[in-house]
């Protein structure tokens, strides 16, 4: 039923999920997930609220383990799949300055804390002017961009982003999408949850469509938007609630 998205194209599989389920108490949050994350194109997790996007990202990151099934990681040339970074849906800022948050991420990743590197990371997400501001005083959108800078500080092989533009204005959304596209172009594997359909179109990767903890489709974005295979996807794209 699933066509495997990137599989069959030139992209190399990096992570594969086989029959993965995740249960919390008696609730099945993810069920029977078959999924391939490939190098070369961003993977976009789409789905309504509560469909399991965040849970799936946490599982891929290794923050939680599957209740059943397997997660396989394959080696890919030039990608350090063990070095992963995560931009949380609600990122938590350390009670320090903006710059110190980036320094902390650098040193946790084992890199020397070079002020020039910190400055260039902040520059990249448009926060250079706020370097000395206490991070918790940044606006929601600024905090999300700082979280992205912290993630980039790790020089990740795989970067997980959970609705990183949810509280950004259009200009900042565009800026963050450009950063994401730029790092994707350097070979970093991007897995991003979003329910911004325009964004999914723009980033044009591989769409994983989730409803109720199940993967209903995994297909290239163009195909997902032009010829959705499932009724649920058609209704989701039309803006109807699917639960």
């Amino acid at each position: 039923m699933l066509d495997g998205g990137a599989i069959g194209r030139t992209a190399q599989p990096v992570m594969r999920l086989h029959g993965v389920g995740y249960r919390s108490g008696n609730t099945d949050i993810l069920s029977d997930v078959e999924l391939t994350i490939a190098a070369g194109v961003p993977t976009l997790l789409l789905g309504p609220n509560g469909s399991g996007k965040t849970t799936l990202l946490r599982l891929l990151m290794g923050l939680i383990g599957p209740s059943e099934g397997r997660v396989d990681v394959s080696a890919v040339d030039g990608v350090n799949t063990a070095r992963r970074a995560f931009v949380f849906q609600k990122p938590v800022m350390l009670k320090r300055s903006t710059a110190a948050n980036v320094s902390f991420a650098l040193s946790a990743a084992g890199f020397p804390v070079d002020p020039l590197v910190v400055a260039s990371l902040l520059q990249r997400v448009g926060l250079a002017a706020l370097a000395d501001r206490p991070a918790r005083m940044l606006s929601g959108g600024e905090q999300q961009r700082l979280a992205l800078a912290r993630a980039l500080a790790r020089q990740p092989g795989i970067l997980f982003l959970d609705e990183p533009t949810a509280s950004l204005d259009p200009a900042q959304t565009k800026a963050v999408e450009d950063v994401v596209a730029a790092i994707a172009a350097t070979g970093v594997i991007i897995v991003m949850a979003t329910h911004d359909l325009g964004q999914a179109r723009r980033l044009a990767g591989d769409v994983v469509f989730l409803v109720g903890g199940r993967v209903l489709e995994q297909t290239p974005a163009t195909q997902f938007f032009d010829q959705p295979k499932t009724q649920a996807a058609r209704r989701f794209l039309a803006g109807d609630l699917v639960i």
């Binding site: 923050l63 938590v92 350390l94 946790a108 912290r150 790790r154």
Partner: peptide
Amino acid sequence: VEYCDEFTAMDVSPLGRVAA
């Protein structure tokens, strides 16, 4: 409770966590 996920995602060492 606030920092747990971030620290795990950032690979902060146990000693580094306590210090932070």
